[in-house]
């Protein structure tokens, strides 16, 4: 096969189309629905990836989707909040698990994506929050964000455990 052929190749050009586990769901951003999606993602990928990778995948997805549920809703004390819709897609590749999450909530604050790590804890002044983005950044590769009109797009990869 020449390089030109390969560029033109669709499925017909593949010697063998690989089957990989994938997951896709659209749901309201509520903690119970997030929990249900995570349980089903664990079931979908459980036989296909090692326990460590599965644990890191579940944690990252929990942090991202619960952030949407807790912070991306509209409304205030005077009006009932409108919950965003989350679309999540997860697929296994050879080197890692690719994830894309979009929602129609308010914009992700820029500071969330600023590189961060937790400072050494001060026992007199322990933080009770701020852990989420630290975990997301620490567990992902190629984390990127895009805002288009009314939607947030976040994509990243969770690397496979080193054998």
């Amino acid at each position: 096969m020449t390089s030109t052929d390969r560029q033109k190749a669709g499925f017909h050009g593949c010697r063998q189309l690989k089957t990989e586990p994938m997951f896709h769901r659209v749901f309201r951003a509520e903690s119970d629905a997030v929990r249900a999606a995570l349980t089903d993602i664990r079931a979908r990928f459980g036989g296909a990836v090692d326990a460590g990778t599965l644990g890191r995948l579940e944690l990252v997805l929990a942090e991202v989707m619960n952030n949407v549920a807790e912070h991306a809703g509209f409304g205030d004390q005077t009006a009932p909040a409108r919950l965003p819709w989350i679309h999540v897609t997860v697929v296994r590749h050879d080197s890692g698990i690719a994830c894309a999450i979009t929602d129609d909530g308010i914009s992700l604050p820029e500071e969330c994506l600023a590189p961060r790590s937790m400072p050494a804890p001060d026992s007199d002044d322990l933080p009770e929050g701020g852990f989420g983005w630290c975990l997301i950044q620490g567990l992902t590769q190629s984390l990127c964000y895009y805002r288009e009109k009314h939607r947030n797009f976040l994509a990243f990869s969770v690397p496979m455990e080193q054998a």
Binding site: M118, P119, F131, C134
Partner: peptide
């Protein structure tokens, strides 16, 4: 291991 990871990555294991 899943729970231990959360404490370790956020340094709350100390």
């Amino acid at each position: 291991p899943n729970v231990e990871r959360v404490f370790r990555l956020t340094r709350m294991d100390t």
